[in-house]
Simulated assay, not measured.
Amino acid sequence: MYGILIAFQDYNLFKGITGSPWVGLDVFREIFGMSGFYEALRNTFLLNLLDLLVSFPAPIVLALLLNELAGRRFKKFAQTALYLPHFLSWVIIGGMMYQVFATNSGIVNELLGRLGVAPIPFLTDKYDWLVTYLAVGVWQSAGWGTIVYLAAIAGVNAELYEAAAVDGAGRLRRIWSVTLPGIRPTIVVLLVLKIGELVQIGFDRPFVLGNVSVRDFSEVISTFVYKTGIQTAQFSTATAVGLFQAAVGIVLLLGSNYLAKKITENGVF
């Protein structure tokens, strides 16, 4: 927390925090005057909102499907295979994606070419890149996200399933009327935490998958801080942006938690 002071200083690496001159809110005024900051902020919200719509439900659906598998061996194999992408570095994933989706040499476009279909610019057209970005995110995170939901499903009272079966409920009806209500508190808590992170975004994924052609979407807060704050040694700028993200994140977290408690009576606190 002590390092937050850098956001209010003209920080000098050699003078340190105690020796650097105070400038008050000048650093924030400079940031809010940059057009690139608003573009990065817009893209951060856009990518996170789309991730929330696409990536958040994916592990829930996947956990429900895995829970319905009858064969224990196949279930364990499927879980292990789905978890594996989480342990891969985004640098490795980025290299794999370029091998698979590159316009001229990617595996997918080579197969499309043999079928007489024109190549798709997965990584060079901003709209195609956006779809690719979201799909890769689901592939990387969905399997790992199922762990929490499978644990929540395991805690649902088995007698409720038996009672539903006696009443003639099929699989889909049991999922809808027993499983989903049983894991609703877990879903709400994770959703609230996810909304609180809307202004936060990792550096690796947009930096590795992004390029100049798709900068309109790939330039986010984390890459903005890296380019304008770290590369040019403007540590005050980098710290101020981080403090801004934390402040907005707290507001989003409190707001989403309040709404969740009002609507579902479940929340983080």
Results as ranks from 00 to 15, higher is better:
A169C: 12
L253I: 04
G229D: 01
Y11E: 03
D216V: 14
S213F: 15
E110H: 13
Y127G: 00
G36A: 11
V54T: 10
A63F: 04
D128T: 14
T228Y: 11
F217I: 15
S177H: 13
V178D: 01
Y83H: 04
S89C: 08
G143A: 08
V148T: 13
L123A: 04
L254M: 10
G16Q: 03
S35W: 14
L172N: 04
M97D: 02
G255Q: 01
L115T: 00
T223H: 06
A233F: 10
D167S: 12
G16F: 06
G145S: 04
K126Y: 13
V199R: 00
I31H: 00
P181G: 09
F207M: 13
G19Y: 05
A233I: 07
V212L: 14
F235I: 01
L252N: 03
G202L: 02
R174Y: 08
G202P: 02
V138A: 06
W129H: 08
V136E: 01
I187R: 09
G71W: 04
A70K: 14
M1Y: 13
Q234F: 01
R171I: 13
G106A: 10
P185N: 04
L243E: 01
V108L: 12
V138R: 03
A240W: 01
Q234H: 10
G170C: 08
E110D: 13
A163V: 11
A240T: 06
M34P: 00
V214K: 01
V136F: 00
A118C: 00
